[in-house]
Design a binder for these strands. Structure first.
Length: 654
DNA sequence: GAAATAGAACAT
DNA sequence: TGTTCTATTTCA
């Protein structure tokens, strides 16, 4: 017997192996197998098999699991994702079933018949070494034993398919503030839990947000709330895994790692703030969890709810096309908006306008909490020598360096190189240095200088521990100033009386084609999390934006969609970023020409930027392809299989 | 993706 | 002719 195995390597073809006789009876599609590859061992998935014999092929070492860990529906989801994101199925499957899942570790044998009584209560791994894995498999197949996990004590068996209900499951975009969202979620969730189903709920991946949701939902569902997020590790992770797989009536809170989680009787999927970038997986297999769980809900024939105050353009387009129903609760009422227009750019010179200081002082007198938003976390993101006029550039990649004062470090945001700041110009040695593009750290220092004995904290989401520690003493008993980046919009449960945005309009430059969308989302989510009564927007006269544009949700989205359509950008056309990195220029051009040839043959539109100087020696090229994927799927596959080429579907920043 | 191999460029 | 860096191939 020959099996064709999908490996987690960036080639789309599969690799064939022959199967030793003792494993033959257990071969099944999508089983994990351990195989020799080059001079190491890899775990792959059986994508197909046939009865032929080929003595030239290497043999598989063993079958890893006793049955495929995912059911047909989850596999269908993986296959869809593989196609949609131009990623080999082996890589997708490996993401869905990561090596960090230690399933066997928690399984124990239960003997069902007298003749295997010796195996009763023996840990699975022990039995493997004692009588051989194939013998254990044989016993299982013959129904002599069961495998029970340590958490539910229920038999481990292939994930059952849910019986299909007749009614068409709903897709809902719920627009409302955090309190109304929680109320809506809770009602819906309890309906499904009461029927014995499980519910998956995806949250933005930030500890403080997660804790808030857990607290609120625990009030209603108590110990039926489970965790499956980034901070859930080891034993706790496996506990959720087995409970979700074997039992019903649980609400599973988590992050993107829930996308492919096997769930028994999955009845509802909720995604809160689906527009957040954290739903995009950036390592290896790049996908958007919000979109994938929408597909999952479709495949599993269950309802899905997207709750937010600032939906993504993609989701809003689904609404417009009639593919998602919208429920909109009025909010943003009773807010006082003011603009503070400055003649000079604060970010460049760091002088705060008098008006702003007055506002802060009155807030302190009234014992209020003031939140200050800035788009940057560091002290300064642009350091320039006033003598030679040159900016501080990264010695490795020539990127513009940022300065972190508390560590006295110059860091490169592009390649994360960092070095100590020597208080002089890197080029000419002058000590006339100007810090501009200032961020949270700078404002913190400035505030501490102006306001003595006032509680001033900085929240940037860099280290959760620090953020938690900083927030510990903030209460409405004493005035406080909280300075932070977008992370401020995750601080649910903390009420700031005043919100001041400094440099918000600079997101226009930072966020690429999604700039306006991002601005809307940052602004609206800040209001949602902090629920301030008064909002102050500090802008430079020259670069000011029309604030009212961002205050009306409907008109904003319709207008943005119009612009996107005219510019042929997502959600109307998809974007594929093709990147080539080479040390030598000629070698790079050769590959680029190959890609161009494929593109031209299919008559596709695309354009090349670069070569961009990268690192000490080396070049990088970028080709951007825009269009409907189905039209050029074959070409993209061809391009994918060229070595040294990476394709990123739906890149966040271009 | 990464090791093995082939090829180019440079120094001795 | 060896040494080192870069490009290409191949994995079953």
């Amino acid at each position: 017997m020959i099996v064709h195995v999908a490996l987690s390597i960036p080639v789309t073809k599969t690799f064939s192996y022959s199967v030793p006789e003792k494993w033959e009876p257990f071969i099944k599609r999508f089983l994990r197998v351990r195989v020799p590859f080059k001079n190491k061992t890899l775990v792959g998935f059986i994508s197909d098999m046939d009865d032929g014999v080929d003595t030239n092929l290497k043999e598989i070492y063993e079958i890893v699991d006793i049955f495929p860990l995912m059911n047909d529906k989850l596999i269908l989801l993986c296959e869809w994702a593989s196609h949609y994101y131009i990623t080999p199925i082996g890589i997708v499957l490996k993401y869905a079933i990561p090596a960090s899942l230690h399933i066997e570790k928690y399984l124990t044998i239960k003997a069902l018949e007298g003749r295997v009584l010796a195996l009763d209560n023996v840990p699975l791994k022990k039995a493997y070494t004692a009588i051989g894995k194939d013998t254990v498999f044989q016993h299982y197949k013959e129904g002599l034993i069961e495998l029970c996990d340590a958490f539910t004590n229920k038999p481990f068996s292939p994930l059952a398919e849910k019986s299909k209900s007749m009614e068409k499951p709903e897709r809902i975009l719920y627009i409302g503030d955090i309190e109304s969202r929680l109320e809506y979620y809770t009602d819906l969730i309890s309906i499904h839990l009461n029927k014995g189903g499980n519910v998956l709920m995806l949250l933005p991946d930030y500890y403080i947000t997660g804790r808030y949701f857990y607290r609120m939902l625990f009030k209603r569902f108590h110990n039926n709330v489970l965790w499956y997020g980034a901070t859930t590790k080891g034993r706790q992770r496996m506990e959720t895994y087995f409970k979700a797989r074997n039992e019903g009536g649980f609400l599973i809170l988590g992050n993107i790692s829930c996308t492919f989680l096997p769930v028994l009787n999955n009845s509802l999927i909720v995604v809160d703030r689906h527009e957040e970038d954290e739903y995009r997986n950036e390592e290896g297999f790049k996908f958007n969890a919000g979109l994938l769980v929408m597909k999952r809900a479709e495949i599993e024939h269950i309802p899905v709810v997207f709750g937010s105050v600032a939906p993504s353009m993609e989701i809003f387009k689904f609404v417009q096309d009639g593919n998602i129903n919208i429920i909109e609760k009025a909010w943003l009422k009773n807010k006082k908006y003011s603009e503070i227009i400055t003649e000079k750019n604060i970010s460049s010179y760091g002088t705060l306008p008098e008006e702003l200081i007055k506002i802060i002082n009155t807030a302190i007198e009234k014992k209020e909490i003031v939140a200050i938003f800035t788009p940057r976390k560091d002290y300064s993101s642009y350091i320039q020598c006033l003598d030679c006029k040159r900016p501080f550039l990264c010695p490795v990649c020539q990127g513009i360096m940022s300065y972190q004062k508390h560590k006295n470090l110059l860091v490169c945001p592009a390649c994360s190189k960092n070095l100590e700041y020597k208080e002089m110009c890197m080029n000419c040695g002058s000590n006339l240095i100007r810090f501009s593009q200032i961020g949270a750290e700078y404002f913190e220092e400035k505030m501490k200088n102006i306001l003595k004995n006032i509680h001033i904290v900085r929240i940037t989401g860099e280290t959760i521990k620090e953020d938690l520690e900083n927030l510990k003493n903030v209460s409405h008993e004493t005035p406080a100033i909280i300075i932070g980046t977008q992370t401020l919009s995750k601080l649910y449960g903390l009420h700031a009386n005043k919100l001041i945005l400094i440099g918000w309009e600079e997101l226009l430059r930072i966020a690429g084609y999604r700039a306006e969308e991002k601005m809307f989302q940052v602004f609206t989510n800040l209001l949602d999390a902090l629920s301030p009564e008064e909002i102050y927007i500090v802008m430079e006269r020259k670069k000011g934006v029309n604030t009212t544009y961002f205050l009306n949700l409907k008109t904003f989205y319709l207008e943005e969609l119009k612009k996107r359509r005219a510019a042929e950008f997502p959600p109307y056309l998809r974007i594929f970023l093709i990147e080539v990195e080479k040390k030598g220029e000629q070698a790079g051009i050769k590959i680029i020409n190959k890609i161009k040839e494929i593109i031209e043959k299919e008559g596709l539109t695309g354009y090349v930027t670069g070569p961009l100087m990268q690192k000490k020696k080396g070049y990088r090229w970028r080709i951007i392809l825009k269009g409907n994927k189905e039209l050029f799927y074959k070409s993209l596959l061809q391009i994918y299989n060229i070595p040294e080429v990476r394709i990123e579907a739906d890149p966040l920043y271009i």
